[in-house]
Write a protein that binds this DNA or RNA. Structure first.
Lengths: 151, 151
DNA sequence: ATTTAATCTACAAATTTTATAGACTTGCTA
DNA sequence: TAGCAAGTCTATAAAATTTGTAGATTAAAT
């Protein structure tokens, strides 16, 4: 399960992706629209900014915006920033590698190869899923709504 | 990341798989061999027993053993018992489905379809990975050790 | 100057994870 | 049937993480 924080982040990013290249969006606006506690959201957006995903502008007319196009913001990037390792265990993590404190010898750990396979499957999806895919899903779901409401 | 508890569970199960159909194994033996706090392990094994994975025997000569063959103990089964939902969010969970408390309308949630894709990729691996695979990995790693120590 | 909006620091409540202690039950065996 | 060996149950608590809040500060625009 991803954390609430990560879900908040993805939702906020969805909003920002929708308004990509259309000027800054207010934190308070995103918070309201997506029902995210404002102060909490502030911390999240700041984190995303400090990691190169977002750009911010202070003062009147300011706000947040994507620094890179939606199709370059992968889920793996976002989740690593907000939730940390994606791998099921540190010993098979690519970005947060560390020795599992409860393992004796890593080289011969039979769990490890299995966990690595799991990690690979995860990354195959998360590396190749971006905000652009969320936008696409959004527009498709709206299409379905339209057609189903024709009746 | 899986919890420490889940990792303990998998390690304990590996030991029990190695000794499948060879009589009961003591909790204390597993705890020692895998460096797991004994009292903690007790709770874990009990949980696995109450969910049909293990079988136990009290009194002298007692202990724990697999109730079903290693190739039938999938990672998904174990992780669901110990860590709960495998899906990245409740709204796309198959066994623990629930409405995400931070979502407005689930039907049109654009994150949802993406999260579902992720879940599917996870399950494809976890449903098809069992203790038998761990045993296989174990024996393969031992083979590599042998050949590399020939020099 | 004043207002607007992001930023920073500190904290605190709530929840989950990781344990530990000790009494209890069951089954074996001498 | 006494006594030991092993799992079982209940309760609790320490530690860590997650989630959220408060208030002062900085930067930009007008």
């Amino acid at each position: 399960m991803i954390s609430k924080k990560a879900k908040y982040a993805l939702k906020a990013l969805k909003v920002l992706a929708e308004r990509y290249a259309k000027g800054p969006v207010l934190i308070s606006e995103i918070a309201m629209q997506e029902r995210i506690p404002k102060k909490f959201l502030e911390a999240i957006l700041l984190d995303l900014r400090n990691n190169g995903v977002l750009q911010s502008q202070k003062g009147k007319g300011g706000g947040y915006m994507l620094r890179i196009p939606p199709e370059e913001v992968s889920f793996s990037k976002v989740l690593r920033i907000i939730d940390g390792p994606i791998a099921p265990a540190l010993c098979v993590s690519m970005f947060f590698y560390g020795k599992c404190d409860d393992c004796k010898e890593e080289e011969t750990c039979s769990l490890r190869s299995v966990l690595a396979k799991w990690r690979d499957a995860n990354l195959a999806v998360l590396d190749n899923t971006t905000l652009a895919d969320v936008l696409k899903a959004e527009s498709e779901s709206r299409m379905n709504m339209d057609s189903s409401s024709v009746s």
